[in-house]
C-alpha cells in the first residue's frame, strides 16, 4: 500500500542526515494569490467584481471537544472500557468520494468518476442551445441545429440537397427528410424509427425550460446510443408514447420562426420575435399546459434524470 519511496525514507539508517535543514528551499515567488488579486483588483475597479478566491493557509487549533476528535476519543474509551480488542472487522472504512453532476437541477450522484463521465457525456455534452435537446455526437448536433434552428436551411433546402445522411463519413445529401430516411433504411439498414432522426421532431413539444443557470438546466435528456448501433426492440414501447403528441402535426416552420435569432439564448422563449410568433408561442403554451413536465418524450427518454439526485 505504501509507496517504496516512502518506506525507504522512513527506514533509512540513522547515519543518513534527515535534518530538514539539508533540504534546499524553493524560492518563494510572489504568491499566486497575489496574481489572482491583481487580476481582480484591476477588474474590480472596472466591473465591481468581488474576489471569489478566499483560500489562505492557516493553522487550525482543535479543542478537546472538537468533532474532528470524536472517532479517536471513542476508540480511546472503548479501549479503556476493555471493548477495543474485538474491533478489527467492524470499523468504518474510509468511504471513497461520490461524484455529482454539476448541472443544477440534475445533480445526479455517482459512485465512480466513470459513471459521472458517462452521464455527463450522454446528457450534457452535445446540447442544442436553442432547444436544449441533447444529442449523442457533434455531427448529429450540427445537423440538428442546421435543420431545426437555421433559418437559411429551409430556404436552401428548396433548391438543393440539404439533408445530410446522419452517418459519420457518408456525406450524401438529400432533398427531403423522407429521402434521407429511405436512404438510411435501404443503404445503411437503419431502423425506420431511428431515434436521432425522429426524436428531433419531438423537440418542439417541449417547452424550453426557463432559466438555464438558476432554476435548472432544462437540458433535455435523450438516450445516448452510439451511432450505427443496432436497434433494440424493447425501446419500441417508449416510442408508442409519441403518436398522441405527434410532432409531425406541427409544421417545421413554426419552430424555425421562433428561433430566428441565431444567438438567442436558451431563456429567450417568451420574447416575441416574428409575426408568426404568437402562433408558435401558442403551440408551445398549449403543449406545456397539456403535458406534465414529468412526462418525457422520445424513445428512451425515460432514462433521463426523472429521479433527481438519485444514485445509480
Amino acid at each position: 500500500m505504501l509507496q517504496p519511496e516512502l518506506i525507504q525514507l522512513l527506514t533509512v539508517n540513522d547515519l543518513v542526515d534527515t535534518s530538514i535543514d539539508t533540504i534546499p528551499k524553493l524560492p518563494v515567488g510572489f504568491s499566486p494569490k497575489g496574481s489572482l488579486f491583481c487580476s481582480f483588483t484591476s477588474h474590480n475597479t472596472e466591473e465591481g467584481e468581488k474576489i471569489p478566491f478566499t483560500f489562505t493557509p492557516h493553522q487550525i487549533l482543535l479543542h478537546k471537544d472538537h468533532e474532528f476528535f470524536e472517532d479517536g476519543d471513542i476508540q480511546r474509551h472503548l479501549y479503556l472500557q476493555n471493548l477495543s480488542t474485538y474491533s478489527a472487522d467492524d470499523l468504518p472504512n474510509a468511504r471513497p468520494c461520490e461524484f455529482r453532476c454539476h448541472i443544477s437541477g440534475c445533480s445526479q450522484v455517482f459512485n465512480c468518476v466513470e459513471g459521472y463521465e458517462h452521464h455527463y457525456n450522454t446528457l450534457h455534452r452535445h446540447v442544442c442551445s436553442s432547444c436544449q435537446k441533447s444529442l449523442p455526437s457533434t455531427r448529429l448536433l450540427d445537423i440538428h441545429i442546421q435543420e431545426w434552428h437555421d433559418s437559411l436551411f429551409s430556404i436552401l433546402a428548396e433548391r438543393q440537397d440539404m439533408y445530410q445522411c446522419l452517418l459519420e463519413g457518408c456525406g450524401l445529401k438529400f432533398r427531403t427528410r423522407e429521402q434521407r430516411k429511405d436512404h438510411m433504411i435501404n443503404i445503411h439498414k437503419y431502423p425506420s424509427d431511428f431515434r436521432f432522426d425522429k426524436a428531433m421532431r419531438t423537440k418542439k413539444n417541449k417547452t424550453a425550460r426557463k432559466n438555464l443557470l438558476q432554476k435548472g438546466t432544462g437540458m433535455e435528456e435523450s438516450i445516448s446510443k452510439p451511432e450505427g448501433s443496432s436497434y433494440r426492440p424493447e425501446e419500441e414501447e417508449s416510442m408508442e408514447l409519441q403518436p398522441a403528441l405527434d410532432p409531425a402535426a406541427y409544421p417545421a416552420d413554426a419552430v424555425e420562426m421562433s428561433t430566428e435569432i441565431p444567438s438567442a439564448p436558451p431563456l429567450s422563449v417568451p420574447i416575441p420575435l416574428t409575426t408568426n410568433q404568437p402562433r408558435s408561442q401558442h403551440n408551445r403554451g398549449m403543449q406545456s399546459h397539456r403535458v406534465p413536465r414529468t412526462v418525457c418524450f422520445g424513445q428512451g427518454s425515460v432514462q433521463g434524470f426523472r429521479g433527481r439526485g438519485r444514485r445509480i
Partner: peptide, 29 residues
C-alpha cells in the same frame, strides 16, 4: 528537525485509511 516527520504523517494516513479514517484525517491535519 527531522524531515521524516512529513513522511511518517503520510504513511499513517495511508496505512490507517481503511481501519481508522479519522486517524488519517488527523494526520493530514
Amino acid at each position: 528537525k527531522d524531515s521524516r516527520l512529513l513522511a511518517a504523517l503520510i504513511a499513517f494516513a495511508q496505512v490507517f485509511l481503511r481501519t481508522h479514517p479519522a486517524l488519517a484525517r488527523e494526520s493530514i491535519w
